[in-house]
Computed example of a mutant assay.
Amino acid sequence: MSPLERRYRRLLRLLPATHRTARGEELLGLLLDLDHGRRHPSRHETLNIIALAIRLRLTTPVTTAALTTGLGALLVAASTQPAGQTLDLFTGAVLATDMPDVIASWPQMVVLGLLPLAPLIAWLGGANRTAFTLQAIFLTVIVGWFVIDVLGGADMGINPGQQLFAYATPVLILVLLAIAARERWTAPRPRLFWWALVPLGILAWKGTGEWGRHGVYVPAAVPTVIGILTAATVAVGAAFAVRRHRTVVIIGVGLTGFVAGWLIPDPLLSNTAMQHFDGQPLPLAILVTVIAAAITGISHLARRHNPEARSLSPDEPEMR
């Protein structure tokens, strides 16, 4: 085996196993012909393989389900935030002496609170391109306001790290919506569960507004509990993934999962969860993702144990 072939075989391991089995040798022969006489893969072909690997792995059923669930959770958390804060504004966040000014401008406040729900509703309704366009418009407006404030001299006391963290969620949503429009993703199921999250998300932001005014503290034991749950989840997943040396794999992966689950949530909780009451949607998105994954798993198990439902297509209604 030549050095070029050996290096190309390493690169081709980035592709999914099914694709390597079906077309791996054919693709390898084509690459060797294109780079004949070289000892290292060319930069152009290397980038093409990496791009192909990313595209193929994004289209696998498991990856698609995970990304659509994450996208839905981010949209729920971010899109319901303005509506929830607007609801909180009229139900306790403002002193009675200041309420006349708020009531006088209620039409504008209600409209500004409800408009960010548009990308979420478009995504749940199956209009991926519309959701992407609306999210791009909202992100442009947010960034535009920030730039205008900075140019106007209102940048005193602004923390660049917090600003980047605040823009990370809408930018990530925009990227995922672009992929969803290109790959024609559909909103995750069950749809009724995701539609119910719209009013529930608004109420959650109202509730966190109430709690935030009285102070909320993350218990010190939470990182340890999350570490134990992470270790158990990773160990169970490893047990199903491997066939040999299961005991060693479970212990090793379990300990690694515990350390990661204990170290990572500590700064995440202290720096992110407390900021949830300052307008950070990421913790709520994580909570929605966990709940959605549990609902999806229960729904999948129910279909496996129900022959009639299993024989129907996902879009076909079940006759009773």
Rank of each mutant, 00 (worst) to 15 (best):
154 A>P: 04
285 A>R: 01
77 A>Y: 05
296 T>Q: 13
87 L>M: 06
89 L>S: 06
220 A>P: 01
19 H>K: 10
290 V>K: 06
319 M>E: 15
31 L>A: 12
93 A>I: 12
81 Q>I: 01
91 T>G: 02
27 L>H: 09
230 T>I: 03
239 A>L: 08
175 V>D: 00
19 H>P: 05
202 I>L: 11
105 S>Q: 15
16 P>M: 06
301 L>C: 04
101 D>Y: 14
109 M>D: 09
9 R>C: 00
303 R>P: 08
295 I>S: 01
142 I>S: 14
202 I>S: 06
118 A>D: 00
257 G>A: 04
100 P>V: 11
46 T>P: 04
20 R>M: 11
316 E>Q: 15
6 R>S: 08
44 H>L: 06
143 V>R: 00
174 L>A: 12
59 T>I: 02
80 T>A: 04
178 A>K: 01
262 W>V: 07
104 A>P: 07
254 G>S: 07
309 A>S: 10
264 I>T: 10
299 S>F: 00
267 P>A: 13
305 H>M: 10
203 L>T: 12
224 T>Q: 03
218 V>A: 11
39 R>C: 04
306 N>P: 08
95 L>G: 13
75 L>T: 07
219 P>L: 04
157 G>A: 08
179 I>A: 14
93 A>T: 13
183 E>S: 06
75 L>G: 03
250 I>Y: 05
318 E>A: 14
48 N>D: 11
12 L>T: 07
245 H>L: 10
314 P>Y: 09
231 A>V: 04
295 I>K: 03
13 R>V: 08
101 D>N: 15
193 F>H: 09
265 P>A: 08
72 G>C: 04
32 L>G: 00
110 V>G: 06
268 L>N: 00
